[in-house]
Design a protein around this nucleic acid. Structure first.
Lengths: 351, 351
DNA sequence: TTGTATGCGTTATCAA
DNA sequence: TTGATAACGCATACAA
């Protein structure tokens, strides 16, 4: 049952009216002052007499003048632009952080130049270059592993940079995030503490997820779990992927013995896929196979069983990143170059 | 169980190296040519002799020169910037569309200036003004209802505009979307065709959702359903909201009789909340109460029962919007000012 | 193929 | 309080 357009509307024949070019010069003439005075009226009204100010404001209203921020940025060397590079904007973990980040900055008059970079370093380098050409006042990058060229460009440009969603001792400039290996180990420790003897890690293909997986597997074995811990990868994270990876595990015999077994996932979405597949097969969770997620999305607490997962405070992360950049832009050295926002293991029913 | 930062890293003491100012002039001197030649080498290498080109490229590599797009835009009156205004980037329906939209445009060399506008018209007007100051080559707006001032600014600026995610006969410029009342009526028709006699509509607070709800209620009654159809609102859409609205309906006696009853939701998220609440109360779906969603998110096909919903092709929408703008930027009149991408009712288990 | 001159619309500096 | 003038870094038109 699909609705389609009823009647195509004929294209407008007349061309759009040519854009009038209104500048501060135009406004100034109308108000009987020079261009500079208009500039001042806009940037610091207190420097202009009340009467002139009124005339200028009237002229602006009458003409619909909108200042040209390109020219302003060129002259002042401040673009009031912040560029943000994230792997994916459809992934709530990034878009959630971004929403807070940009709200925080917009409140200070900045605008956001956004690009998706995927998970490829060379793509990222090209995007960084494109963004730098806009002379942003600061830049947000996701992750701490970049192409050499990216590092060089950024250092050369001298632009404040915050790397988020991971942590390192050697940031390009600033860093706000958490340790992925630590998160993986925390999941392993939790699993062992709950008595799970066998484990598997299902993961998306990105590098941070893989590091969590590797740390999980290593720690789980060290902590006395039965190894080896299979790591099954798929990219990117999707419900279907979670189902498929889980199906493959079960088909391979995972969880078939009376062992207590747990599937750890690199994201809540994959974990939800696992829950769905297990439910479809009539496998009890956590009785027969337990499941752990990562991210603590809204649905985690609503699924049945509710999902044990790792919470990362996306709001705090976005806010801290914004604040760090603002401090740096203000010329001050932030009190900390590297901020670890940590994470929390949220215990629910699934594991 | 929360991990916190182990050791705060001491702030870097030395100031960052001052940014060297490298321009085409600098590069030109190093390569033994003038500034214009560098400009040409970058914009159209075929206009420069191979040897000069090589020297220029070496100079660029040596200096790490990155062209200043602000200056370029000012001089050429083309910013290669497209601004996009969406109510929320954390909502998959908008971020999904945006991902396609920006991928399409990035491939043509454009960058995306993004802002969240919420659902307030005055906020939107302020954001539009801020964006216009960057002199974008085109703009994407969500919805077709805007403040008068927004319309005036946009018309005055003469910038190509595409309004998406809704449809109108009187677009500012271009329009790509679908009819929300039609979608609401399609849901009502489906519900009646399946024999549901009572209905309720649970909805987020935004205007488009409310219009779907109103159209649903009206049509459901017209088509012989038992009225009145309660419309329960909450903003914004969330699982918890869906549960709460559903709980309120059930508590008010909805679905208590042996009538065939259906809850229609303004989004899949609300619908999922409804499913969760109904499951928690042991109410059979669709046996006792049916549920319909809107949006066809990935989870819709994975829920249990799978969710009957309305699919809007976000990719197609984003792509069509990008194409329409590109055509307009190219100076040609698009063959259609208004493009209805339609929608499709996806029949699954929940209704 | 390359260069000179000019302008894009601001902000910053200095004078008045 | 206001104005004249010079950048800002590039693209465009025109010359050579």
């Amino acid at each position: 049952m699909t609705r389609r357009p009823p009647l195509p509307i004929p294209p407008r024949t007349e061309a759009r009216p040519p854009a009038r070019r209104i500048t501060m010069e135009t406004v100034g003439r109308m108000a009987g002052v020079s261009q500079v005075t208009v500039s001042r009226a806009l940037s610091d009204p207190s420097k202009v007499s009340p009467e002139t100010l009124t005339r200028i404001q009237e002229a602006i209203a009458a003409t619909g003048f909108v200042p040209n921020a390109l020219a302003g940025a060129l002259a002042s060397k401040k673009s009031m632009l912040i560029s943000a590079l994230v792997p994916s904007i459809t992934n709530i973990v990034y878009s959630g952080m971004l929403a807070t980040f940009s709200a925080e900055l917009r409140a200070r008059g900045y605008q956001i130049l956004l690009s998706e970079t995927g998970f490829d370093r060379e793509d990222e380098a090209a995007t960084v270059e494109a963004h730098l050409s806009r002379r942003p006042d600061a830049m947000l990058l996701t992750g701490v592993h970049h192409a050499d060229r990216t590092r060089r460009m950024l250092l050369g440009a001298g632009v404040p940079v915050v790397e988020v969603w991971d942590i390192t001792d050697t940031p390009i400039d600033l860093c706000v995030g958490f340790s992925h290996p630590e998160a993986g180990r925390a999941m392993a420790d939790y699993a062992r503490a709950r008595g799970y003897r066998r484990a598997a890690f299902i993961t998306a293909g990105d590098e941070r997820a893989l590091r969590r997986g590797a740390a999980f597997a290593e720690r789980f074995a060290q902590a006395g779990g039965e190894g080896p811990v299979p790591i099954r990868g798929d990219a990117p994270a999707s419900l279907a992927g979670g189902r498929a990876l889980t199906a493959a595990l079960i088909d391979a015999g995972f969880g078939s013995e009376a062992d207590k077994a747990v599937i750890a996932a690199s994201s809540d979405v994959l974990a939800q896929g696992a829950l769905i597949e297990l439910a479809a097969r009539g496998i009890a969770v956590p009785g027969r196979v337990a499941v752990m997620g990562f991210g603590d999305q809204e649905m985690a607490a609503a699924l049945s069983p509710t999902l044990t997962t790792v919470r990362v405070n996306r709001d705090a992360l976005g806010r801290a990143a914004a604040q760090a950049l603002l401090t740096r832009i203000g010329g001050a050295a932030p009190d900390r170059q590297v901020i670890d926002v940590g994470f929390a293991l949220v215990e629910r029913e699934s594991a």
